[in-house]
Design a binder for these strands. Structure first.
Lengths: 211, 211, 211, 211
DNA sequence: CATGAATGAGCGTTCATTCAT
DNA sequence: AATGAATGAACGCTCATTCAT
């Protein structure tokens, strides 16, 4: 029976509508921020992109900067969720899977990440709040993974911090042109293949070892 | 016997003075661009940083954008000079040296490079004119280096393009936090050591190979 | 039965309001342009004259030059309408009437015309777009009128082009001080009288002919 | 004997040199003012036109406005000299000569007069100081000439003021396009011919009188 | 006397934000 | 809730003028 609409339902429905609108604005804004940069994007640009009056935006966000913050936060939430589910790195196969999954996640939010990188590159607050604080656990986990294997005599005695950085760098290198918008995103198969090659190279190096 | 002050001397002295002033402005502007971004930096900011009237800047540069271009070009010239001197990649030792030299070069112009990256990240023209067109030879050279070794059975059959990207990524990974301004630059010894570890890892992988 | 306030009414009302505002700005600007010239008049001057914020002007015009263009165009429209209605010059009486009507039209938009003359005096584009291209038909018509009468032996064999120019010059001479703002506009009676004297003098000359 | 150069000579020579330089600057400036208007002409424009440093101009004139004033004054002096020599208007032949001489004088200083008209059109001070006060005697003389002839029954009973205005207007009409820069200056023969036609038309009208 | 360099004042224009409706 | 209109506070840039040399 929906004849009677409770105020609570009404409220939540309204809230959902607002949240939906916020998302629409954020997506449009992210696209523009990615393309032209945050500063160069005007509120008029955003308003036109979502076919609204400029002043209407201020019903959903308190300022242009607030739109950016919302984009970064929203992105951060998704990353957090995914990073929480990062399984322990047991073997090479699971490593490949993790790398593939991370690539997929990042690529599925290309514009958001392009904006994130652009802003983090100059704004220290953004760098700390949305990049370092989020990725530190991953780096720590990677370093631990490496350190343990070095102690066990499985890995060469490289600095774990540098090793972790190189691993991340290799996998980012593969997708950076896509993030930057100068290359098409890879197909899922291609992506998995990339992940395999990256893990293989990082693990065994470029040289074929003579037994 | 020349006149005490020949007109030619006078002219060159004047030119040197102008060039010196341009350099002062470029350095100050690069610092601000790196910190706040090109758009967010005002001509007033730059003028105050070099303690000049705003209009005086326009005696040395024709526009704010012209200051940016000068910074990017100046940087590009240095890169070009260095890339021209890139020796052929013969052995691992020379590889390490090249990586070390590149790191040194990039780190010696930290702010300029930070600006370059920031602008290239959003401005396609900058990306092509100052990054892709300059670095393409390096990437090509690297790919060729890899392809040859794969054919000779020395390297694993990885995609040369991906391999080249990973090599560059690894070496950039080591210095990115310095460029970003969140880490102190490495000492020359430390830098050489980094180069060695990077080349070692890229060459032989993380795993110790069992014979 | 229409809605109390139909959207169409709303829209046209808004449009009328905008048009009214544009007119207010144009009148104030024309006064300033006439007094100090286009270049010497600042957007601040105009804004203060209409008691608006400077930036508000840009909601109605896209640039300072656009205000000028609107003034010139607006004036041009009126002239066009009037010139279209120029009756054929049949006899001296209709000639007087035409001269009177032209004078009235020009004097009714004194400041606009003062601006037009000032700008046409230095800006070739304005001269061609708003003066020559508009008045050429009048001059042509006058020349034709003269040429026919010369052929019929009614007029002296003067150059038609010079004759046309002198006719226009005489009638402009009568009102130029008013346009310039150093003389009060003539009453309608005075104006008609002026027209009569001008046509009389141009027709029969200053000298009383001895039969 | 000029071996001994007196300080007085030196001084006057210096003064002549200065006066010569002032003239060079005024001519260049007048050309620019005529072309682009006073406001739109920059001191840099003028300096470049005379191949001087901008600041050097200030050794000869105290301000940009001062250059304009000098141009207008210089022009006024020449006009004054000529107007003083205006012979009494005795007969039609002398009238034609006067008109021709005035045309020649005005056309020989085309740019100066174009500037004068432009400035007088908006600047009341210029209008009074350089136009009205100079030309009033001419107009008065013309009015008197007309009034006398009306009284003697030679001229039709037109308002002398209007008659004078029409005479001047007719002769200006003939050369205005030259002043404005859209027509080539007439040859001396053509000019004399124009003067004749103008005086003829003004005197006897367009219509051929039937005896 | 000539000038390169410097600059304060001000220009036309933009834009994030506010507010009345 | 939505928006057209308004605007203050800048912005990049120009230019007449000054001044040290």
């Amino acid at each position: 029976m929906v004849n009677h609409i409770s105020p609570i339902n009404k409220e939540t429905r309204r809230e959902r509508r607002i949240e939906r609108q916020r998302k629409v604005i954020m997506d449009a804004a992210a696209g523009l921020f990615a393309q032209k940069g945050f500063q160069a994007t005007t509120t008029k640009d955003i308003a036109e992109a979502v076919d609204m009056g400029e002043s209407t935006l201020y019903g959903y966000f308190s300022s242009k900067r607030d739109v950016l913050q919302a984009i970064l936060s929203h992105q951060a939430e998704m990353v957090d969720a995914l990073l929480d589910n990062l399984a322990e790195l047991k073997d090479r196969q699971s490593f490949v899977e993790q790398v593939d999954r991370l690539m997929e996640m990042i690529l599925s939010r290309t514009v958001y990440n392009r904006v994130l990188i652009a802003e983090a590159w100059r704004d220290d607050e953004v760098l700390w709040a949305y990049v370092i604080s989020r990725w530190q656990p991953v780096m720590d986990s990677l370093q631990y993974f490496i350190a343990v294997r070095i102690k066990d005599g499985i890995f060469r005695p490289i600095e774990p911090a540098l090793g972790a950085r190189m691993i991340v760098a290799c996998f980012i290198a593969a997708i950076m042109p896509v993030l930057r918008g100068v290359e098409a995103p890879p197909s899922p198969e291609r992506r998995l293949n990339l992940a395999r090659m990256i893990v293989e190279t990082i693990s065994n190096g470029l040289y074929i070892q003579k037994g």
